[in-house]
């Protein structure tokens, strides 16, 4: 748990008129969104809608074109250098393609940043790595290189690597989209556990079953704008925006959507 929390009632993340353009094309167009501490927010939308860009803006893997993102009430728009790196080390990011360091074992993948970024003593870093590998069910895979692990195992190591930094916020960018169907379950199980642990999460995913079960809120975006922001029961229930409705229909019944 982070020490010296400001006001816990304050939103932990607050998007304020956030805009992002790549060249002339706007990708995020004036997003306002506020996330409470411990909330699990699922972000969904058609491909190219800007959902990945939206979470990449939070830890500044993409630069803001306009607006600000407050983290625990603090503006982050102007952060640079060491302050920006501190912000990033406090925010975990899980990639679609896992992005484990290919030249390091699973164990070393976890300890590298503990050593070089947080400056933890070796014993403590090793301890964290062992604990987390056990937590994601891979206690025996520490000495394996990423290429020796299945996609699902790699993603679980990537999640362990992220958790080792003890982040305040976790961002997931389509964490199961690159996985074979039979491995999606093992990764979702780990993420579900995390959601229950009370950590704040923003999850971009197409796994609607997961969203329905785990999310506190579902945010639907299209063309860089938030179209709908509702609890899952409401989002998957009756009232909703026609575009969100079409999206859900296609996702739940792809053949119907393509044929219609």
């Amino acid at each position: 748990m982070p020490i010296g929390q400001p006001d816990p009632s304050l939103p932990i993340i607050q998007f304020k008129d956030v805009r992002k353009s790549f060249g002339d094309s706007p990708v995020i167009q004036g997003v306002e969104l506020s996330v409470k501490r411990g909330e699990v927010v699922v972000i969904c939308g058609p491909s190219g809608s800007g959902k990945s860009t939206l979470i990449r803006l939070v830890n500044r893997l993409e630069s803001l074109t306009n607006g600000d993102i407050l983290i625990e009430g603090e503006s982050t728009a102007g952060l640079k250098g060491a302050a920006l790196r501190k912000l990033r080390s406090d925010i975990g990011f899980v990639f679609q393609q896992f992005n484990l360091y290919a030249h390091l074992t699973a164990h070393e993948n976890i300890t590298l940043a503990l050593d070089k970024v947080l400056g933890l003593p070796k014993a403590e870093a090793d301890g964290r790595a062992n604990d987390l590998l056990a937590r994601v069910g891979l206690a025996d895979k520490g000495q394996h290189y990423p290429a020796q692990l299945s996609g699902g195992q790699q993603q679980r190591v990537a999640i362990a690597r992220t958790l080792a930094m003890q982040p305040k916020i976790l961002l997931f960018d389509e964490p199961t989209s690159a996985l074979d169907p039979e491995m999606i379950g093992e990764v979702l199980a780990v993420i579900r556990q995390l959601a229950e642990s009370g950590i704040t999460m923003l999850v971009v995913t197409h796994e609607m079953g997961f969203a329905r079960e785990v999310a506190d809120r579902v945010v639907f975006i299209d063309q860089g704008q938030i179209i709908e922001d509702a609890p899952p029961a409401q989002f998957f229930g009756a009232t909703r925006h026609p575009r969100a409705q079409r999206f859900l229909e296609q996702l739940l019944s792809p053949l119907h959507g393509a044929g219609a």
Partner: peptide, 13 residues
């Protein structure tokens, strides 16, 4: 791959 760089940046290196 560019993902290696992104992963490291996202960890605060």
């Amino acid at each position: 791959p560019s993902g290696q760089r992104e992963a490291a940046i996202s960890q605060g290196f």
